[in-house]
Nucleic acid binder design. Sequence first.
DNA 1: CTGAAAGCGCTTACAG
DNA 2: CTGAAAGCGCTTACAG
Lengths: 335, 335
Amino acid sequence: MSNLKSVAKHSKVSIATVSRVINNDPKVSKATMLKVMASIEALEYKPNRVAQRLRSTNNKTKLLGLVIPDIQNPFFVDVVRGVEDYAYQNNFAVMIGNFGQDEKKEKLYLDILQSENIDGLIVAPIHGKDKGVENLVKKNIPVVCIDRGLTEIDVDVVKVDNEQGAFNAIDHLLSIGHRKIAFISGNFKIPTYIERLAGYKRALSDYGVAFDEKLIFSRDTDYKSGFEIANKILELKERPTAIFSGNNLLTLGALEAIHANKIKIPEEISIIGFDDMPWSISLNPPLSAVRQPGFNMGRKAAEMIYERILNPEKNKENIILKTELILRKSTTRLE
Amino acid sequence: MSNLKSVAKHSKVSIATVSRVINNDPKVSKATMLKVMASIEALEYKPNRVAQRLRSTNNKTKLLGLVIPDIQNPFFVDVVRGVEDYAYQNNFAVMIGNFGQDEKKEKLYLDILQSENIDGLIVAPIHGKDKGVENLVKKNIPVVCIDRGLTEIDVDVVKVDNEQGAFNAIDHLLSIGHRKIAFISGNFKIPTYIERLAGYKRALSDYGVAFDEKLIFSRDTDYKSGFEIANKILELKERPTAIFSGNNLLTLGALEAIHANKIKIPEEISIIGFDDMPWSISLNPPLSAVRQPGFNMGRKAAEMIYERILNPEKNKENIILKTELILRKSTTRLE
DNA sequence: CTGAAAGCGCTTACAG
DNA sequence: CTGAAAGCGCTTACAG
C-alpha cells in the first residue's frame, strides 16, 4: 500500500503538503494541489484511516459504533439499515456489535468499540439502568440511545411511542368486544415493555375493564419464549380471547404454538403483534400489527450522533416517533 | 482515557514493560507482572486497538471486514451471526458493510475496510467477476468468499451446494407430477443462481422433461421482483403448476402476489422456496423450502479467515455445505 | 528481566 | 504557500 511518504516523493513535496491536499486545506496552491492529486491517482493512494483516527479526533473519517440487542430481530435490521444509509452518505464507517441479549457480550462490545476510538455510539441499552452505556455518556463519548432510553441519566434518545402503540392495539381489541387479552411481553427490565404495559393498562381502564395480572407473561424476547408462553396461555382454563404479543419474534413463536394446537385465528383467538414485517401479510392469517419505523429510527439516530459529535455541549434530545396500527385478518369481533 | 504511559508511571516501570504484560510476554517477572496488572486494574486501562493496529499487523487484536449484499435478507443475517459468534469467542472485532446489491456501494466499503487496515475480509462478491474483491486477493489481503466464489481467481470460499439444493426441490416437484415449473431467479450474474438453474435443468433432464426457457424469470433479488415476476407468471396463458423461487425475499413477494390474486396454494399452484426461515412454518400455507446453513457458513468463513491470516501461503479451500429440503404444505401432488 | 528508542501513517502548530 | 518536527498510543528489536 502506498502512503503519504510515497505520494510526497512522487510529487516532490513534503508529506505535510500531501496531508493538506487530502484534507482540502485551502492554503495549498492550485498547482501543487493538482500535482499531488495526480500522484494520489497514479499511486492509488488511500489515506490510512487507522492512522488518521489515532492522530486526531476532530476529523472527518468518522467511525460509529452500533450496538444492538438482537440482529435476528428484523426490527433492529431496519434500524441498522437506517444508520448505515446515513453513514454511507457521509462517508462514515460503522462497526456493529450484536449482543444477543447477553449483558457480558454487550459489555465486551462497548469496551472494544471504545478501544477502537469510535467517534460516537448508537446503542439500544440492554435495560434502563445500563451501567456500561452510562459510563460512556459520563466519559463524554457521544451516545445516542435507540428504542429505549436510560432512566438514571440524561442522554439523546430516539424511540417510538410505545405506550400509545400498545394502547392503540388494545383499544382496538376492546372495541371489538375482547375483554380477556393476554400480553406476551419481553423482560420488564427493558423500558420498552414497561411502556407497552402502561399502554395496555390505560386502554383497559378507558374501557373500565379490570387489570388482571395473570394475563401478563414476561420472559425473553425471542421465538422460543413466544412459543412457550403461548402454549401456556392456550392451556389456561378460561382461555383469553385475544393475544397481544410484544415483538415480532414473540409473535412468530406464538403463531407456531397456536397452529400446533390447531386453534383457529381469528375465530378462536385473535392476535395483534408489535412490529410489522414484510412477511406479516403472507402469514396465516395476515397479521394485524403495530408498525414501528425502524429505518427512520436508525437514520434519525445517525443524524443525531453526527450533531452530537459536532456539538458535544448541546442539550440532549428525546425524539419520539409514531407507530401505526395495521389491521389485517388476525383479529375478529367477539360475538 | 488512561494509556500505556499512565500505567507505566503508576506502576513505576517503562511503557515497554507494560506493553509486554498486556501481550503476555513470558519474559516479564512475576512480581512486575502483578504490579503492572494492579495498575491496569486501578486505572481501568484498556489498550487502544487503533494504535495497536497501526503499529503491527501480526498481533491478536484483529479486525475483520464483513461485506454482504443485503442485510434485509435473513439468510445473510444468519451468516453475520455465525461470523460474529466466532469473532466474539476470539476477541475479534467485525466491521460490517451492507452494499444492498449496489456495486458502487460495495466498492466504497471495500475501500473503507482497506483503509481501516482490516486483517481479513469475508465477502459475498456482487458477482462472479468482482474486480474489487479480486484486487484485494491480489494484494494478498486474506479474503474468504461466502455464498459465491469468484470465477477468474483462486480464493477461499464457503458456499452451499446450490446445484443439488435446486435439484432436490425440482426433483420433488417432478416426482409429484409437476411438469411446468417456473423458476423465479435472481440475477444470473450471481454464480449462485447459475448453479441453481443447473440443478433445475438436471432434474428436468432426469425426468426427460424438455427445458423451457420461457419458464425462467430473472431480475433482482428482492421482495419487489418476486412480487412482480409472480404476477407475470400468474397471467401466463398456460399457467405453471409450480413455482420454484430463488431466495426468501423472492418467495415472500411471490406469496403476496399469489394471495392477492386469490389463487390457492397448493391446490392451484405449488411453491418451494430457496431459504428456510423462522416464519416459513407460520406462512399460509406452511412453506416447503430448501434450507441453507447460514450460521454455519458464517462460522466456517470466520474460521477460514483466521487460518488464512495465520498462514497466508496455504492452499485455497473450497468448502461446500449441504442443503436440506424441508417439505411442508405448499406443494401438492398433481392429479 | 527491563528500558530507551525507533517507527507505524498520519495531522498540525510553528516557522519561514 | 510550504516544510521540518512533534506526537497520537502502541510494539519490538536492541542493548544491557
